[in-house]
Every structure is written in C-alpha cells, then in structure tokens.
Design a protein around this nucleic acid. Structure first.
Lengths: 225, 225
DNA sequence: ACCTGAACACCGTTCAAGT
DNA sequence: ACCTGAACACCGTTCAAGT
C-alpha cells in the first residue's frame, strides 16, 4: 500500500553527454519554458509542480530553488509569452498602422497560447505588458486626441483586445458543437429572435470580426479630432 | 494521528424549528447561493466543496446529490449572478440608451462579483448570458447598421465590456499601491516615457473611462450609418 | 429520494538534510 | 549553491452504505 512507482525515472547518477535533454542544468528559464509547453498542451488545470518536475527530469522540490511558488511560475510564463519587440521605425508609421499592428500581434500571441487570455486578468501586469501599453500610448499621441481623451483611448483599445481574445478563447475550435448547441437552444426557446435571425453564435469569422470591430473603435477615436 | 476534528459541527439529530438556519433543507438553489457568498468573500481559490458543505451544515458528499461537480457549482453561480431582467418598454427606447444601460448594468454586476469576470472567459455561455446578447442584438438592430456590420458590432460591444471589467477586476481596490509601484517602475526605467507622462497607471476614474470609451465605440458605430 | 463517512488519488509546500 | 525525499495539510470525487 506504501509501494512507490519507481519505474524509468528513478534517481540515477548524472552522466555528462547523455541523450534526451534531461541532463541540462535546471535553470529558471528552462523551468519557465517547459511550463509554457505544458500550458499550451494541457491548459492551466494541467500544470502541476509534480508534472513540471517530471518533464524536467528533476525532483519536485528542486524547482523551488529557481522559483518561488506555482503562482510565480504562472506569472513568469505569462510575462514571457507576452513579450513584445516593437518593430523598428515604428515612430514614423501613421498612428492607425502602428496601433493596429501592435494589437493584432498581441491578439495573435494570446490565441497561440489560449491560457494566457485566461490568466492575464487575474495577475499583475508584467514589464512586457508595459512595453505594449507604451507602444499604444505613443501611437495614440499622434492621433490628435486631447490630453483628456488619450488615456481613455488607450484603455478602450486595451479592453477591446482583451475582451476579444478572452471571448475567442472561450469558444475555441475544440467545440464547434458548443456554439451549435447554444444556437439550438436559442432557436428552441424562441426567446432570442434577434440572435436567431443573425445566426450570431454560428458566425466564426473571428479574424474578420476582430478587424471590423477595431475599425469601429478607431473610427470613433478619429472622429474626436 | 487519525484523530478527527469533531467539535461543534458533529452529526446531530435534525430538530425542526431549530435556530440558526442550518436546519433548512439542502437544495440546489441554496447550494448555489452560499457558493456565491463564499466567492464574493474569498474568490475562486477560496471556494472548496468541503468549505461549502460546512457553510451549509451538511456533509461534503451531500452536495453531490444536488450538483454534479465543483465545475457545475461554478457554472451555476456564474449564470445566477449574470441574470438580466430587461427593463420594460426597452424596445421603444433609442438604441444608444438601450445598449448603454444594459452594458452598464452588466459591468456593475460583474464588478460587484469580481470573480465572475475571471470565470466567464473560461466557461460556457449560460442562458442568462444569451438574454444579454439578445438585448444587445435588438438594440443595435435599431441603429441602422448593415446586416454585415451588425454581428461585428454586437461582438465589439461585448468584447469591450468584457475587457473593461476584466481589466478593472485585475487592478481592484485592494492594491492601489500595485499601480503605484508599477508607475514607479515605469518612471525608473525611463523606458516608458508616454506612460509616465500621461500617468496612465495612476488614473483611477474607472467609471468615467469606461463611459468615455464606450462613447468612442458607439460613435464609430453610428458613423457607419 | 436524499444523505453519509471512509477511502483513493491526487495537490502545493515546509523542513531537515544531503552534496 | 543547488538538489533531495519524507511528511503535512490539504484537495475533488468514487463507492458502498445507510435512512
């Protein structure tokens, strides 16, 4: 009853040059990057410190030398994924182009790592998030908005992307039938005539919808001249 | 080592008319509503099936008669909180008013239960969420948008509110100093001149910013005539 | 129909210890 | 400086059983 699963990954002496990648030194960077791999594959619920250690070929508690806690791992993974390298010469670009390309890059990254959209709301803004806010801020300063409007504009765009990504992630490709079953519900009750008519829940041109909505918002900003 | 904490909440025979509220029958509705209380007080991490049972004065496993799993409890709590009763005569209202009041109600509710903003992205849309989408859909149909634009408009507004709430919840009143410390970071590095200048992170007029941004978006929609 | 405790298979993390 | 296993105090849920 107290027997332990030893199997293939019991302790063994370290051999240099061993195949498999297991022999690499444990580093903070390596911990974070395999955490990201696991998150991509299994989502936040699939990440455990025990599983992470196993994937790294180390004991569980070894992780705690490089990392403060599981929360810490999540914070680091999130900030790593959100990294943004502003394209060179961005400051000469027109504001709409600069803002749009940064936001689309942001959205694309979050969709590539869907867990990030789920996690971002509940944790601190990291340095890389600040880089994005700064780029947004600079872009909008060229839009001719009043000082009073500019912060509201930044947050509007931020919120829009955040919401779009989070919504998109919650539908997700794995369950196309979820939307279908909701649509059926909407039809059945006949309590939702407008949704039914526009087939809102079946529309899956996410990219187009994102672009169009962003256009609405930018139009609204431009209109404040 | 195997001793058990019996104390005040050990089994006792059911007495009718007993004081304290403990004697109420266990119902699905009661399970959900005390789950909401706990979520409000302690957040998603603070909700455990064991704690929930204790708050209800029942054994843990009794819950599973009324509820399928913890996930189920969260889904139910979320949909309960999101309930929307469209104001009478909404269909005669002008579209901007109808849309705005529904969205502000939605935002207010989510801010009153901050965990809901965190949870919504990762779970199914419930019936009550559909009611809100329907109201949005009906309101916008009066705005004179083309059929091609209307779904994009719905999702834009949805995304905006979602993002605004989620962002707001992630700052939260508990840590006004978090923003301050971020601002310090921004100043220190001098890598974020635009953020620093506008004092973006110190701005805490969330309500005003929300309204203004919503205005930008609605202006953009109106401009599509 | 409704409620129960014991037990199972997990978690994250503290600690005292090894090298 | 870096890594370790044992142990602690938790989880959600299955099960077989009670009324």
């Amino acid at each position: 009853m107290v027997e332990k699963k030893r199997g293939t990954r019991g302790r063994r002496p370290k051999k240099t040059g061993e195949a498999g990648g297991d022999e690499l030194a444990l580093t903070r960077a390596r911990v974070v990057s395999t955490a990201i791999e696991i998150l991509d594959r299994a989502g936040p619920a699939g990440l455990t410190m025990r599983g992470l250690a196993e994937a790294l070929g180390s004991g569980v508690m070894s992780l705690y030398w490089h990392v403060k806690s599981k929360e810490d791992v999540l914070d680091l993974a999130l900030d790593t994924v959100l990294e943004y390298r502003a394209p060179a010469g961005g400051s000469e670009q027109d504001w709409r182009g600069q803002v749009t390309s940064m936001l689309e890059d942001w959205r694309a990254i979050m969709l590539r790592h869907p867990w990030s959209a789920t996690l971002l709301p509940s944790r601190t803004l990291g340095p890389n998030t600040l880089v994005r806010l700064e780029s947004l801020s600079q872009g909008l300063s060229k839009a001719g908005l009043s000082d009073a409007d500019i912060n509201a504009a930044i947050w509007s765009l931020w919120n829009y992307v955040m919401g779009a990504t989070v919504t998109r992630a919650s539908f997700g490709p794995p369950d196309a039938d979820r939307a279908a079953s909701l649509q059926r519900l909407a039809e059945l009750g006949a309590r939702f005539p407008a949704i039914e008519r526009s087939r809102l829940l079946l529309d899956d041109d996410w990219d187009g919808t994102f672009k169009k909505g962003l256009g609405f918002l930018l139009d609204g900003l431009a209109a404040q001249h």
